[in-house]
Nucleic acid binder design. Structure first.
Lengths: 221, 221
DNA sequence: CGGTCCATTGATGTCATTCAAGAAAAGTGG
DNA sequence: CCACTTTTCTTGAATGACATCAATGGACCG
């Protein structure tokens, strides 16, 4: 991990779309410290104290939890503009790692709180709500969906972030599997199935198009 | 569902332990409306607007989410003193039902907020954090634990609420199964296994003792 | 006492995992 | 830019864990 060089605030001051929409995000941009993480580098560790807020500036991040024997569960993926790691005043239940080389804005929660209690409440409150929402979806997926449904749900979820039907996956099969509670082989088979059914079409491991969004949504349940 | 009769506030004014500990809980006791729900009665529905706060006064509650074809996932169980249903300003992703006949204190979120923004923030903030914490544990359980580990984790979790090694389950096998992402038969088999291994001992369907907490914890991973 | 509900247990089936091999892509050094 | 290695992904066959189907056994309740 390295602090990004001076010209980084140039990038930050060019307010992106997310920064304009959400009040409190620009205050975070002003106060936060930009940091660079290499692919697979740890942003914070399991059981570490949670006193910092993080926002993805570029690249993507995953949070994960590991059992003693190495089984891994990914909690979520975070993309440009999103906040993560805000289980404030507790220990992190998940660790966070960079999915790819990425830039992350880091801010001490207490500093933001001191600067503007209102901005803090809004930022952390809405982020926590969104997080809870996602996590509850995740529970349903893991508890009651079949492998095919899980993979279909996942593709829909990823596709819904962008406007287009052409999507680039920011993660590999192992990360997908560990998010979906499956093995890498099962994920691969389900992707092949979906492709065989002409619902999606892959061009390379990480590039695909959705050919039939209705069918995919139905398969996701 | 019925409004409880007048003498209900007698019960409430006898501040229970939880009410004394958590600031903001007693303000909720004063402002909230006590309601009585019969076993299996719905407290709120999936996709209903979330504008009320709920606290269990007596009995227990489960939250659950149902797929189109009837598959059900239980999100959590809530016991005396606990808050639930506070995904404020959104739609409920889960519905909530009474596990047994129970009394629940209901309060309009906006009313509490108007009365004391501080109490509101503290109450909802800490409840949401706890909820997120639990849900993340649930994700790990559903995504990466075996049936035996799930059941062991569940028993440990229930036992940790009380001080004693003698526990009464507030729910039946179907509810356990739908929380653990298993079938009722598998839950039953795992319980028999644990009993066969002398880790726990059942006396009736809902009463059991933990004979070897260390072993149970190890089995839970 | 008979009926209903709920839990247990056994036999069988199925879906996902595991094990194993090979193919495609990405990284590395000349 | 091209061989070579390494990593990542796919596919097939065998196994295994949990689900499904079916029968039985208790507990509770009118």
């Amino acid at each position: 991990m390295t602090l990004s060089p001076d010209f980084s605030d140039t990038r930050l001051s060019k307010g992106d779309a997310a920064a304009q929409r959400v009040p409190g995000v620009d205050i975070m941009s002003r106060m936060g410290v930009p940091m660079i993480f290499a692919k697979d580098e740890e942003v914070y560790g399991q059981d570490e104290n949670a006193e910092l807020l993080y926002r993805v500036v570029s690249g993507a991040v995953r949070t994960s939890q590991v059992l003693t024997d190495g089984r891994r569960q990914i909690g979520g993926f975070y993309y440009t503009g999103e906040l993560f790691g805000f289980e404030v005043g507790q220990r992190h239940r998940f660790s966070a790692e960079a999915l790819s080389d990425c830039e992350i804005l880091v801010l001490k929660a207490s500093a933001l709180r001191a600067a503007s209690a209102e901005a803090y409440d809004h930022l952390v409150g809405s982020a926590t709500n969104r997080e809870l929402d996602r996590t509850q979806d995740h529970v349903l997926l893991l508890g009651r969906k079949s492998a095919r449904e899980r993979v279909a749900s996942f593709l829909i979820g990823i596709a819904d972030r962008g406007r287009s039907d052409a999507v680039t996956l920011p993660m590999g099969r192992q990360d997908m599997a560990d998010y979906l509670g499956l093995t890498i082989e099962t994920v691969s088979r389900m992707l092949s199935q979906l492709q065989g059914a002409l619902v999606v079409e892959f061009a390379g491991f990480r590039e695909f198009r959705i050919n039939n969004r209705g069918a995919l949504t139905r398969l996701a349940n």
